[in-house]
């Protein structure tokens, strides 16, 4: 019994101290954003690393998700004789939910884990302490450009995912299953609202980009500087990112689409 209470207390304390350290870390990172205007080169390099190299996986996943939505949607909608609304179904589910969420999950797996491993190894091989010895702030030099790059790349990737998915749904729907091409687009345009759907989707992807990059960078920075520590930190990045993305998605959806 005492042991259990002991365990409970320790878990709570470590949890809260970690949250505290994470918040301080975030503040330091955000404080460095101003100096990035002087060195855009660093951010561009990182956008290449987290954005351009994630491009292919996002586009291919988007295409297949859209095509599957087209197939599944068609089978269900044709039961009700409402195949024409396929475009609306594909676009609404992609723009509102699947675009931001699946992109963020892929992003956490593809770019987040890489960021954690990179920074964790930098810490394990004492590159970060080396920088501090040379009076270079490792947060400004290493962390902030990566954070900014993740924050910029994520909404762009999510928009690409949704756009490619809608085209994929159209390929299957109108090419394979014979839904009318005009109906596919016009039903979509008539019912997808710019502010309610598109802008809210972009807001979601911004929030997810912020949170996943923050988690990835913090786990890397906070890692135990051993090879085992780095591997654990990488796992934690993916797991914690997935939890936060799905949890936040529920909260954001309840706030955005609740009062209709």
């Amino acid at each position: 019994m005492i042991k259990f209470l002991n365990f409970l207390g320790r878990t709570t304390t470590t949890g809260f101290t970690k949250l505290g350290r994470g918040s301080y870390f975030l503040l330091d990172t955000l404080a460095g954003i101003g100096s990035m205007a002087l060195r855009p080169r660093l951010v561009v390099n990182q956008i290449y690393f987290v954005g351009v190299l994630s491009f292919l996986i996002i586009v291919i996943s988007g295409l297949f998700v859209g095509m599957v939505l087209g197939l599944q949607g068609y089978y269900i909608l044709s039961d009700f004789g409402a195949e024409e609304t396929l475009g609306l179904m594909v676009a609404a589910s992609l723009v509102r939910e699947l675009g931001p969420v699946v992109t963020a999950l892929l992003f956490a797996g593809r770019a987040g884990s890489a960021l954690t491993a990179e920074i964790g190894l930098m810490k394990a091989t004492e590159q970060l302490s080396g920088m501090e010895m040379m009076a270079i702030d490792p947060i400004k030099r290493i962390i902030t450009p990566r954070f900014l790059a993740g924050f910029i790349a994520m909404p762009l990737l999510a928009a690409l995912f949704s756009a490619v998915g809608i085209v994929g749904g159209q390929l299957v729907g109108t090419g394979l299953l014979g839904v009318d091409d005009g109906a596919y687009w016009s039903q979509m345009q008539a019912n997808i609202d710019f502010e309610d759907d598109i802008v809210n989707g972009v807001i979601k992807s911004l929030v997810f980009g912020f949170v996943t990059t923050w988690i990835a960078l913090f786990e890397g920075y906070d890692t135990v500087p051993t090879s085992e520590g780095v591997s654990r930190a990488t796992t934690r990045t993916v797991v914690n990112s997935a939890f936060s993305i799905l949890g936040l998605d529920f909260i954001l959806t309840a706030l955005m689409f609740g009062d209709d």
Partner: peptide
């Protein structure tokens, strides 16, 4: 992609 969503997909 964003422009595509705004102009082609939504009612903007």
């Amino acid at each position: 992609g964003l422009f595509f969503l705004a102009l082609q997909v939504s009612n903007l």
